[in-house]
Amino acid sequence: MAAKILDGKKLSAEIREELKGRIARLKERGIVPGLAGILVGDDPGSVSYVGLKEKASEELGITSHMLRLPRDIKEGDLLKEIQRLNRDERIHGIFVQLPLPRHLDESKVLSAILPEKDVDGFHPVNVGKAWLGQEAFLPATPIGIWEILVRYGYGNLRNKEVVIVNVDNLVGKPLASILAQQKIGANVTLCHPTTPHLPSYTRRADVVVVSVNKPKFLTADMVKEGVIGIDFGSNWIDDPTSKTGKRTVGDIDFETVKEKAEAITPVPGGLGPMTVTMLLANTVTAAERQARIT
């Protein structure tokens, strides 16, 4: 039996509708959620991603304040901009588009954001609080994964085996922050893409999450029957049948794994559409917390 397709596009639209309601309630109290983004330089990928965030904010009624700063900006000047945004009461959420040019100290820059406005959840205080199981902002990808699981009815992970192939600060570690908490009760394994005998881990998984950016990395022989497959890979591969000669695929060998899985996220249309939405959700939450409505 073919797997249920976990439709991130549809879920994302659903969540945005809910956000509109929360934004309307904020507006009744005279609060318009504001999201500030900082883009340093003109990396085309970052430019287009910031543009997406800007457009999506405005569509929902979140005011966006995007700062586009020159590539050679001095660290001190960038930090001053962040402090200005920290103080600005119209702004409830701040993100810095990564990666930053090399001369800037990423950890110093991210730590300058006020934790209450750190809607990307990269400030060490938020990372630490989340890990300790306290209220904190978490990055968009792991909360997007969690929302998909919960909204498709797979949120009860007690005694389930969750295997995450990624140990990065953006995906693996913060996802473990959600799923390894006592209240969830899952057994969580963090694997490196280079973990020896990786299939012996992934085959035990009830839920497998992959983010390694290698097409067809996770094949059908590496999963058990009935697995839930979550794919955060994005690979641009040759496809002679497509108009551009290229197409995007994930890290899971979708065609074969979907025959074995209970449910699976497609690429594109799985986690991708969820990430911007979760950033907006964090921004609305930040505005509510700052206005003390929770």
Partner: peptide
Amino acid sequence: GKPLMGMLVQKRKGANATVTVCHTGTR
């Protein structure tokens, strides 16, 4: 448990492990 997991998954010498956390309630 939690800090140990965070330490041992780091990509550095003396860490670099594949880490599973479970608990007494694990079936």
